[in-house]
Amino acid sequence: MKKVIRYVILFSFALLEISPVLFLLAGTFMGNQEIVECVAPVLKKGDGYASWKLFPVFPTMKNIVELLLDSPEFFQMFWNSVKIAGGILAGQLIFGMPAAWGLARYSFTGKKIIYMLYIIMMMMPFQVTMLSEYLVLDRLELLDTSSAIILPGIFSTFSVFIMYRFFCGIPESILEAARIDGAGEFQIFFRLGIPLGAAGIISAMVLSFLECWSMMEQSMTFLETKSLWPLSLFLPEIEDGNAGLSLCASFAALLPAVIVFLSGQDYLEQGIASAAVKE
């Protein structure tokens, strides 16, 4: 009996968590008319309440085709998102990864202060740094360019923290052995640090990607030109004509994140858990 209750609780929460994806998936294959019929009350066109179907009665690919072939704005936004996420991730590998390594494996004057600074930075929500970011981007004449989103994103310290945790877990004896064999510090980082800390690096990248893909405060604030906007600012609307297209677009917007999520899931879990467990 206890077992049954546990099953019911665990699976009903799981269902609640994934239901939006299921809804959008169904909506992607529905025709406009079917959607409008379902949500007519919300559109103030019918009585009763909105409803939904988990399986379309008249499945169609029409909206998918229209989205893929006939919506240039959507594609523009999609590629903007890819560009922003790609730029930030690459930058975090170039700047964040060595920083995490340096903080994790070496002791030098001021290290503690730098570490504290990184932790405090990690905790600050966008609202605290909004004005300072604006001021520096204005000074560098970067406002209203993709760099306004990418450059500050590169130096966000959250991914450094995740990689730091994993780098700390590498046994010192391995590095010591390499030093005795005459390896230089940079060699050790590239030959031992990166491969042995790979799980942490991937975890940090998966988490960063998910964050980049849905971040919108920065773009809202620093990008005026709509053609630069990422997909996270795409505001789908349900009207008679484009209901299907909107649903389709909503689904397409979450697809890359879900793919990264599914393929990097173990790493994602490790990355999240690394914050909880002290080394």
Binding site: I18, V21, V42, I238, A253
Partner: peptide, 27 residues
């Protein structure tokens, strides 16, 4: 993984659903 899925869903993708669910004549 089911519990973690929402982490991958951008707010923009759920806006439409929230409207359908939480409207005065919503689900």
């Amino acid at each position: 993984s089911a519990y973690l899925v929402p982490l991958a869903i951008p707010a923009a993708s759920v806006v439409l659903l929230w409207n359908i669910v939480f409207d005065q004549s919503g689900m």
